[in-house]
Amino acid sequence: MFQGIRPLTLAQQLGSLRQDWPEGQGQLTKHGLSWLIPLQPTPLSRIYVIRLTYSALGQWPHVHVVSPSLRALAGTRKIPHLYCQRTIQLCLFAPWLREWKPQQRISRTLVLWAKTWLYYFEDWLVTDDWQGGGIAH
């Protein structure tokens, strides 16, 4: 599908984020793209602030929840579907399966996937059963 299509530049990704998620804020720096956005999985959910960073083409974007603390919400339980428990990096796709490609808009993939992940996280907080699918870690 994306063969022969050039990856989007960081500036293009930032422009798309600004257009699709005007309530967010971000910038390009010498380290790459950084974007903060409030997300509410459902009208009854709390509001989460996520930070999305994308350092360079050829690297994978990273998504972390800035607030509230997922660790505090989870208590003593290990949070499911994180790339890293220490940094609380959300597992939104399997990079080795190329489920996300740099030709895709972050604003129309990863932000929506993060919102869905948060929905399943809230369900897990209540049921202690992860229903969001994915590959076991």
Rank of each mutant, 00 (worst) to 15 (best):
L90W: 02
L44D: 10
C84I: 02
Q19S: 09
I135L: 12
T87M: 06
T76R: 14
D129R: 13
V66M: 14
T87R: 09
L33C: 04
T76Y: 14
R71K: 14
Q104F: 14
L97P: 00
R71G: 03
I5T: 11
W113H: 00
T9F: 06
G132T: 03
S67P: 02
Q131R: 13
Q19P: 01
T127I: 03
D129M: 08
L92G: 01
G26S: 00
Q104N: 07
D123M: 03
Q25C: 08
D20P: 00
F2N: 14
G4C: 06
Q25L: 05
A11L: 14
G133A: 10
R18D: 02
I47T: 13
F93I: 01
Q89T: 13
L82I: 12
D129L: 11
I5E: 05
L90G: 01
Q40D: 03
I79Y: 11
Q131L: 11
I88Y: 01
L82N: 04
R51H: 11
Q19F: 08
L33G: 01
S67Y: 05
L73M: 15
A136V: 12
L73Q: 15
S67C: 09
G4T: 10
K30R: 12
Y83F: 14
L36N: 02
G133C: 08
A114Y: 03
R108V: 00
P7E: 04
G4P: 03
L90S: 04
A94G: 01
H81D: 11
L97E: 06
L97R: 14
W117F: 09
P80N: 12
C91Q: 01
K78W: 12
Q12N: 05
T53C: 10
